[in-house]
Design a binder for these strands. Sequence first.
DNA 1: CCACAAGACTTCGAAGTCGAACTATGTGAG
DNA 2: CTCACATAGTTCGACTTCGAAGTCTTGTGG
Lengths: 175, 175
Amino acid sequence: MSASAGPAESPSTAERLQQDVAVFVAAGANESVQRVITAVHGLSRRLDQWYDRQLADLDLTAGEWAVMSKLVRDGGDLGLTPSVLADAANVAPSSMTHRLDRMAERSLITRTTDPENRVRVRVRLSDDGWQLFRCVIRESDMLESDVLSPLSKADRVRLAELLEMVIGGLEELDT
Amino acid sequence: MSASAGPAESPSTAERLQQDVAVFVAAGANESVQRVITAVHGLSRRLDQWYDRQLADLDLTAGEWAVMSKLVRDGGDLGLTPSVLADAANVAPSSMTHRLDRMAERSLITRTTDPENRVRVRVRLSDDGWQLFRCVIRESDMLESDVLSPLSKADRVRLAELLEMVIGGLEELDT
DNA sequence: CCACAAGACTTCGAAGTCGAACTATGTGAG
DNA sequence: CTCACATAGTTCGACTTCGAAGTCTTGTGG
């Protein structure tokens, strides 16, 4: 980190503080923490980039894909409401409205008011939506296998376990 | 894509396709893959949420924080150019321009044209920026430790190693 | 010495997202 | 029975981001 044969006259304050940071990272017991956090973030970022590219080929955004997969996983035959979808996709309800507008225009979903509770709207995947979903699954399957190819099956399981432990702890922290 | 099943529209189509998906997930050797991918994504999302909250308290966005930390890590005494920062933060150069505008207005950074190559701009952290940086580090340190508290130190190292293996493989795939 | 090509950054128009206000439906108290 | 209130969803205005075109500087060949 002492990358400088630097002159002493530049912001001396900055230099001092930079050393402070180095101390922070080096002194704490949490270099391992930093490593994990950085790796998780980096991997997620890369994966997202790939997904975006994949989906773009099919004229889909990551957000639209999130809606579709949520509908497949938990939609059942009656579909899901916009609020549930917004929550699942971590966007504001207003954004979901707009997103569903687009998807309905492209006939990927259908939007019908619940006859039993006319405040609610039921969003369901259309046949076109299902077809596209299968298409994406088929491609992303190959991608993901490639991504994890450097790991043995045992390693993958171990990795999944560790990550799930962290996530489990998160749930508690959240309260 | 098209080909094959082009049946009439009916709920039964949906049901059949849903079974197809189940087969996809269950049959492939990659349930472990799915587990990992899902966990990485979920953990990253949760972490981001926390960071956003933390940073919001200091009137910072995640993007601005990315700029600051990049400058600290690799800025040295001469700073970095907007293009480098945009690349590091994974945003378009135009977005970085805007972001730097805001940060400069708040005196978090300084922007000076390189005297030796007047096409280039040198972005550096100001003293105010340094101060804020230390502030964030101090807080996020505690947060991250909490997040990884369910893991032993050995587990953390193992987790970091596994993730780094995956990322390493990614670099090669990218070509 | 000047014109032109290349590179680095900025400006501009379009699209997506958010929070707040608004509309319509269902629910419970008097 | 009716009115206030809670709930689900949409509309509206402001902000951020992106890609493409534009501006300014540097380097090169005639």
